[in-house]
Design a protein around this nucleic acid. Sequence first.
DNA 1: GAAACTATACCGTCCAGACGGTACAGTTAT
DNA 2: ATAACTGTACCGTCTGGACGGTATAGTTTC
Lengths: 182, 182
Amino acid sequence: MDTMPRKPIARDAVLDAFEALLIEVGERAATLDAVAKRAGVSKGGLLYHFPNKEAMISALLERMDALAAMEIEAMKAAPEGAAAFFIKSSLWADTPMDRVFVAATRLAEVAHEETRRRFAGIQQQWLDVLAEEVGPEMAKAVRYMGDGLYFNAMLEGGPGANASERSADVGALLAAVERLRD
Amino acid sequence: MDTMPRKPIARDAVLDAFEALLIEVGERAATLDAVAKRAGVSKGGLLYHFPNKEAMISALLERMDALAAMEIEAMKAAPEGAAAFFIKSSLWADTPMDRVFVAATRLAEVAHEETRRRFAGIQQQWLDVLAEEVGPEMAKAVRYMGDGLYFNAMLEGGPGANASERSADVGALLAAVERLRD
DNA sequence: GAAACTATACCGTCCAGACGGTACAGTTAT
DNA sequence: ATAACTGTACCGTCTGGACGGTATAGTTTC
């Protein structure tokens, strides 16, 4: 009977904490000490899993790519159509995907090149799927609307007081998408 | 009868430098030393005009508000209509307004509350003008498209290689706006 | 017995801000 | 008229604290 090693529970906790801090207080305040404290982990423990901050960022970007891939699949399979699904999912709903995305935005804003490249890749995938449904021109309009939704989520920094107002906006956007469809 | 003292030429130079660094290298790297160096001013000189970093940020936000007010006026008076004008002006064209706006975005991303409030105010003004032209529902669609354009400008960090691609996108967005108008 | 930690001390670097000084234009007193 | 003075616009250096990262010795869990 080979002894199974302990599960690295701290690893995910650290990543969650890093994500939460990026969303709530920004990149500047998401220091190693702060992340460790929030994760309920010692600084040594954090650095055991991620030898340096860059490694922690990389892990977060991996998480984003994985979730984005799932999102793309869901988008293709959506019964209401890719465009409508895309708009709906661009609203801040505190899903895992929303969280990594906004968190990563904070890194991109600080001119983190690798993060920017990843974003560009994901956005291109979205655009491709949208174009299949509504054509390349209108796909751009739809994608920019979704980007605008994310832009606002980013400015607010999470699910704030405007949550209900924003979800009302989605209705307006879906109506606009309907008009653009034909 | 007091004659005017020496002109504070450094003040504007500092603000320009701060703006440029925010756009190009992000908030993190826009340190007092970096700003002073870029402005061709000593650190002491910088701190003479702006007693602390927060004061420098405030001055930048003042600049943004002033330019935004002008933009709103231009939007109201635009012959092609407010919506079309808005989309066109949302493209990164390296105008003074574009520059402060993106620069300020970097600050908002770092969870700077005052900056966020200013953004909300400006966005509301835009929305009001747009609503007069195309109604409250479609105004949101248009504003989100513009926000999306800014979001992408922010991710790229200035007028980059994708400038021509983006300006082609504006064509698609204007077509979308046309469809939404009637 | 080894992986997954905790806890703490420490180092080098960077940064915001404080501080003391310099240069010079204009003002006042003589 | 000119010397003494005043206020503005800077310059250059220093310090205290925070942050990323290293190191290391001990503890828990499988």
